[in-house]
């Protein structure tokens, strides 16, 4: 019955107009933010077409020669894509596991301490590394590991051990970079877990004490089970972002030291160099698109898992 259909449509449209009128202030309040995300997140999306052309700077993206999947083919056949993916995921995976383990460990320890002043001061110090720029982190690392003046070599020389030259040895960096990232971020996650511990009902703990439960049992049977949901959610969120590397950290530590690339090049650093140094927008964009697609699929999968476990934490 077409007339009813038309009526429904008109009604819907009229309702829409009414709503827009009624809520025009609230809509206006959202407009600046929407313009922002259109300008910086959505508008660049059509530019992904550059991944399918042989880019010519003068002609612009849409007038460059279309080459189909050639850019991807090159990255795939040279093994580059595999190396970058492997590095990015392995670094993130190792970091995520160790970071959460250490953060839970430290959060439980802080909770056991009764001296308030000590707690406050150490929390301040533990968060400090998270507060500084990646540039400064790079300099701190240089301070310790530099061959000529580094603190480590100073200590080694003092002990009569030969100097160590990590900046020309790619093999040591996977371990070092994970350590550095832990140094910078563990304090942050410790606070997250500490907050979760603080939310435990004190009556439960008092009751356990009353029953003669010792500290180890209390941690094992009350605190740890209580942290399990937080851990699972944080792990799932982290897994959703596992193909996205910590660019600032890697770039400020490794920089243009190409000796270290085989073990330290991640997707972000490769894309950055391809864009800024080589103006190779097509290759950079091909890698970026590949990363975005995989990242998107992973976020969706993890979000689905979260929705199943704790619906209130799911993203949408």
């Amino acid at each position: 019955m077409p007339s009813i259909d038309k009526n429904v449509k008109e009604n819907k449209f009229a309702l829409f107009c009414d709503n827009v009128k009624k809520y025009k202030t609230l809509i206006l309040m959202c407009i600046p933010a929407m313009i922002f995300f259109i300008a910086f997140n959505y508008a660049p999306l059509p530019g992904l077409y550059v991944a399918f052309v042989k880019f010519n700077y003068g002609a612009g993206i849409f007038k460059s020669k279309f080459v189909g999947l050639d850019n991807f083919k090159f990255l795939f056949e040279s093994g580059k894509l595999w190396m970058l993916t492997r590095n990015t995921i392995l670094y993130n995976f190792t970091f995520i596991i160790l970071d959460n383990f250490l953060a839970i460990f430290f959060a439980i320890l802080i909770n056991e301490i009764t001296r308030r002043m000590f707690k406050k001061i150490t929390q301040t110090i533990m968060l400090l590394p998270y507060f500084i720029s990646a540039v400064l982190v790079g300099l701190l690392v240089y301070n310790i590991f530099n061959y000529d003046y580094g603190f480590l070599n100073r200590v080694l020389t003092y002990m009569g051990v030969p100097r160590w030259a990590p900046y020309s040895n790619p093999k040591v960096w996977p371990g070092l970079i994970v350590l550095i990232q832990l140094w910078q971020c563990t304090g942050y996650n410790t606070i997250v877990y500490f907050a979760a511990i603080m939310a435990i009902d004190t009556e439960v703990i008092e009751a356990a004490r009353m029953d003669g439960v010792n500290a180890f049992q209390r941690i094992r049977y009350i605190t740890l089970p209580y942290l399990k949901p937080t851990l699972i959610i944080l792990l799932l969120f982290a897994m959703g972002g596992i193909v996205h590397g910590n660019f600032g950290l890697f770039y400020n530590i490794v920089g243009r030291n190409s000796i270290l690339y085989p073990t330290t090049d991640i997707i972000e650093t490769y894309v950055y160099r391809a864009t800024v140094n080589d103006f190779n927008f097509s290759t950079a964009s091909a890698v970026g698109l590949y990363q975005s697609v995989i990242g998107f699929i992973l976020v969706m999968l993890c979000n689905k898992a979260i929705k199943k476990i704790e619906p209130e934490y799911s993203l949408f």
Partner: peptide, 16 residues
């Protein structure tokens, strides 16, 4: 707004 952080065009199109 949220979707903006889920799928990004990456550095090269952003730079251009």
């Amino acid at each position: 707004i949220y979707f903006a952080s889920l799928f990004s065009a990456g550095l090269a199109p952003y730079y251009l």
